[in-house]
Write a protein that binds this DNA or RNA. Structure first.
Lengths: 185, 185
DNA sequence: GTCTATATGGAGATAGAC
DNA sequence: GTCTATCTCCATATAGAC
């Protein structure tokens, strides 16, 4: 099972952290090599497409994580209100109370936005639709459910921006408490 | 008055647009030279500190604009509720219904965040305090006013992220209508 | 799969003439 | 204040041995 040699699957999460901390352009191959402990040759062995392929792999990894841990629970849970409360916990945890940046949100504001426009779009569409489905099953009108979901997803991003700008994780936690309350109201 | 030769004051707004569109690292000196019509020498004549000084000048310019057009009206207007409605209009206009990125928010998520940590922080603190002052004068408890202001400022950033990610300005406009309604409620 | 060495381009920045 | 020419450095990416 566990091998000494590197595998793509081991590297991708590390790449994610590096991109989160330094951004796409700020994550030089030298830095990536340093942080992953891999030489450039190894990196190109795993990702022949270079940095762009690395970022794409990270985005796919993020998508898979949210699909399994956020979207699907929202869509399929027996109790939609409980699923929303679970979402809050997952999200606060995932973003480390706002200390961790949302890579997709950061990409959306960044120079790379055009290169990953589809992935960025899909992330937010999927989240909004899954949350909308939960709200609908919780008894809301379809239109209202979608509106509220969109609002919540946007507000989470806003909380990430502000809490990072102020260097204050409590901003994020308070915001997520409010967002959950609004969703459950 | 109006001279042919370039002045710092003429260049800074252009720099702002370039940084908004391409990010700090994506705005190469070659690109800046191209878009401003100035050679590198001229740019270094105006900004001996290079790109960092350019970005600092842009942030100072943004701060001055918000101070004059947003913060001061919020603090000093006779009718605080009217000031909040004016803020919404100013903000929708300024961000071109979400088509224009908030440079400060983008910097907050970017690699350059540490270099401009103070300016980024001040932007959001000033906005939150000015809006909080308006809400207080509108009759809210000090604590509540601050909370609501922080929430609104964060939500505006979230609206910018989402509307850009979806490529849909209507997301931004709807969000700002909601935000205004929540502030005036 | 990982190493060392290297190609090549573009980045930020500067010098000095005009 | 703006030009042309140039410096230096580091970026991404590749080649080929092991």
């Amino acid at each position: 099972m566990a091998r000494i040699v590197a595998e793509r699957a081991d590297i991708v999460p590390k790449l994610g952290e590096i991109f989160r901390e330094h951004g796409f352009e700020g994550a030089s191959l030298a830095l990536i090599g340093q942080k992953t402990g891999l030489g450039k040759s190894s990196l190109y062995h795993f990702f022949p497409g270079g940095k762009e392929e690395m970022a794409a792999a990270v985005l796919a990894d993020i998508d898979a994580w949210f699909e399994a841990n956020v979207y699907r629970p929202l869509r399929e849970a027996d109790d939609p209100r409980r699923a929303i409360a679970d979402m809050r916990r997952s999200v606060v945890d995932y973003f480390r109370s706002g200390r961790r940046v949302c890579l997709v949100g950061a990409f959306a504001l960044d120079n790379v936005r055009d290169r990953f426009a589809l992935e960025i779009r899909n992330y937010f569409v999927a989240w909004t639709q899954a949350l909308g489905a939960s709200l609908e099953r919780a008894g809301h009108d379809r239109q209202i459910a979608h509106q509220r979901a969109e609002e919540a997803v946007a507000n989470i991003q806003g909380a990430l921006v502000l809490s990072r700008a102020l260097g204050d994780p409590s901003v994020f936690e308070r915001a997520l408490a409010r967002i959950e309350a609004q969703l459950l109201a």
